[in-house]
Design a protein around this nucleic acid. Structure first.
Lengths: 332, 332
DNA sequence: CTGAAAGCGCTAACAG
DNA sequence: CTGTTAGCGCTTTCAG
């Protein structure tokens, strides 16, 4: 068995209470007693039993990081950046538990005891049941990436509707009139927001959108590819395509190239997310940057603030998206 | 405060022991007593306190998933697939704790108490200290992606040296004589293995490798790009480039295109990993597929086996890599 | 400044 | 089949 504070107490000739206090640097204990005990602990290679601590302190030292899904529809880059962002602020004070919301059949294991706080990277309105459950349990919460107005819940997101608006406005300003849309995964909030931005821009410039110029997508390469193939089969092929993420944009570019056409000479393409490869495909992809790593860092930071000060601020933080001009759009 | 087994006991008119047994479905308890207690627990919305369970059972219900680094050099796709693979097998029996080894300044918080088992996706020999520590603590271990021969440690990896050998042999068989190498991140085992495979193939076919035909890389887009630029500046530009991962291959392709040349007509490019976008870039990338998700799934599966049967098999599992032929190589 | 005693919620002998 | 009792390792009153 491993060493406990009692073992140290025996060797130091003090009570285990004193050891506990000394190791927690309590001001009640004399400096030299503390030092003696610390040295002893070090020698014995003592490590606190966090389960015991958790039990008595009613803290788990766990932070949950939840995604709508791990198995379908979350892109690798998004996932990676979100974890990095959170991980960069928690250091080793907390353990980061990563999970997909759709991995749970019931939420009963989600309790205050098992999570000191939770960060929910929410991509769908369907996550609301999960969020409500956690909020009802009194778990400090930060919801990222999707607007919520649950009381006491932190909310950090980027203005995707505006980003899409900018991107599509840009296409129009470049003289494009026949602009098609490849939508995001249905049910994902981001898909809705980006579509809204698209529509607002089109409306703003009084352009009409023929039904054939909209195609559903799944946020993956393949669906972008096949949606574009449909556009290419039309009588009047669009001169520009707004894709609701970069992966679909890449799939679309592939379809265009395969048909013997060129980007951007024949058809312009715009993506969304500014994934790491966007600058490196040929032609480099014009896209909308969304500060995912920053969102998750800010969310984590504020959440830790709430946890450690036992506050429950209901802050909402909206970060700006940015249009990144590259080479995949041609001016007509 | 939340309901405990004692609350249930009081209401059911039994001892808390009986409740504990009933809820754990002990054969010692009569069926109808069990049922009564279960119903009561349901009504009260009882959830077990896992900290208390952990303390007495000496299990944490935590599985650690460690990467060499989260902040530098691990590619998003790799990371994503590894987590997915592991997550798909653990269901909700365990919590998955994700961490970078380089996040730790000291390992003392890594104990048997805090992890029922650990999966270490090891990309560097430098991880060995961490592995040794965990092994010494008696934590059931699965090391993925890098060979280790520590006793009692499961080891699952793919034959990357062989994969690189296949890829380079293929280039040679297509008639290429001037073949350059963009290496992986120095210190990463995979970088060494892939380089070894490259060299073995070159040697096998009695080709020589001028020093100018090797460039260090960092596994990212940018380093592939700049390495390729160097090759393009040479008097004798190579006719083919073997890149130690797909991201560098994409960077290299970018540099080639920028120089006014074409892939594969002027220069052939081969990557490694078969990242999700490899099939969608233009031209589609010929590359070596490495079954990351399968590796992590197998690793997790075997680890759970070891944990739950209290075995410590020292199994080593070598999965095959596979050359995926696409369009980025030209036959001379 | 230090110690004795109680208790966090649960499981596991041991008795009946 | 059920209950009594002890104890996992730690923190926290309360008393000195």
């Amino acid at each position: 068995m491993s060493v406990t504070i009692k073992d140290i107490a025996k060797l130091a000739g003090v009570s285990h209470t004193t050891v506990s206090r000394a190791l927690n640097n309590s001001p009640l204990i004399q400096e030299d007693t503390k030092e003696r005990i610390r040295v002893l602990a070090e020698q014995l290679d003592y490590t606190p039993n966090f389960n015991a601590k958790s039990l008595v302190l009613d803290r788990s030292y766990n932070l949950g990081l939840f995604f709508t899904t791990l198995s379908k529809g979350t892109s690798a880059g998004f996932f990676y950046e979100a974890i990095r962002g959170v991980n960069s602020v928690i250091q080793d004070r907390y353990q980061l538990i990563v999970k997909g919301i759709d991995d749970y059949t019931h939420f009963q294991s989600i309790t205050r005891k098992s999570f000191d706080g939770m960060i929910i990277v929410s991509q769908s309105d369907d996550d609301q049941a999960f969020i409500d459950h956690a909020a009802a349990k009194g778990i400090p919460l930060a919801v990222l990436n999707r607007p919520v107005d649950t009381q006491g819940v932190l909310n950090v997101l980027s203005d995707e509707e505006q980003g899409a608006f900018l991107a599509v406005s840009y296409l129009i300003e470049q003289g494009h009139k026949r602009i098609a849309l490849i939508e995001g995964r249905s049910g994902f909030k981001s898909a809705q927001n980006r579509k809204d931005g698209f529509e607002r821009a089109m409306k703003h410039f009084q352009m009409n959108i023929p039904p054939a110029y909209r195609r559903p997508g799944l946020y993956d390469l393949e669906s972008g590819h096949s949606a574009m193939q449909q556009f290419l089969a039309l009588e009047e092929v669009p001169t520009a395509v707004f894709c609701c993420n970069d992966e679909m944009a890449l799939g679309a570019m592939k379809a265009i190239t395969e048909s013997g056409r060129h980007v951007p000479d024949d058809i312009s393409v715009v993506g969304f997310d500014d994934t790491v490869f966007a600058a490196y495909v040929t032609p480099a992809l014009t896209t909308v940057r969304r500060p995912i790593e920053q969102i998750s860092r800010e969310g984590a930071l504020r959440l830790l603030g709430n946890i450690e000060n036992k506050r429950t601020e209901t802050e909402q933080l909206l970060l700006r998206t940015e249009l990144i001009l590259r080479e995949s759009v041609r001016s007509l």
